[in-house]
Amino acid sequence: MGAIKLISNKILTLQEILAVLCSIFIVLGVGSGAFFRYVLGVSFHGLEELLVIGSFWMYFIGASYASHKGKHISAEVFSVYCSNPILRYSVSVLANFITVSLSVLYTYYGWEFLMWSFDADGKTSRLQIPLVFGHSAVFVGFFLMSCYFFNDLMGGMKKLKAAYYGKPTE
């Protein structure tokens, strides 16, 4: 149990670092593109290819970090207007379950996408960067999200169980 906790903390820190680095890379990349063109009069062809790869890692690392922090947007209409705790927790577990299932399914599709990308061996048109550098972010993102959502599902089931035995844990 301790080892899992340690690894998951390390992964979280890694996600934080990666998210910040990608963001800074994008700011500097886009900014320097404008600077080079407008001030120095030269254009870095293919810069956008690097930026797109960085952006996908930012998106998917950011989104997986958000699923750890519970920051994904959800409507939660039901939980606000339902006053019966057992019903509320059951519906919330159902929502968690649907989320985890889909997340796992798309992790699998993400893996197939990655494998296909390796085989097809596509490259960006200017800098000839393998497309797989960007494509892999999708798989990694969905994989991490699956882990965090699974964790949420476990938590939700615990709450439901507590509510069922009359020990609400708000």
Binding site: S67, H72, S74, A75, V77, S92, A95, I98, T99
Partner: peptide
């Protein structure tokens, strides 16, 4: 799925 609280992208 939105109403029961599934996060928007997963809905």
């Amino acid at each position: 799925t939105l109403i029961i609280g599934v996060p928007v992208p997963f809905a």
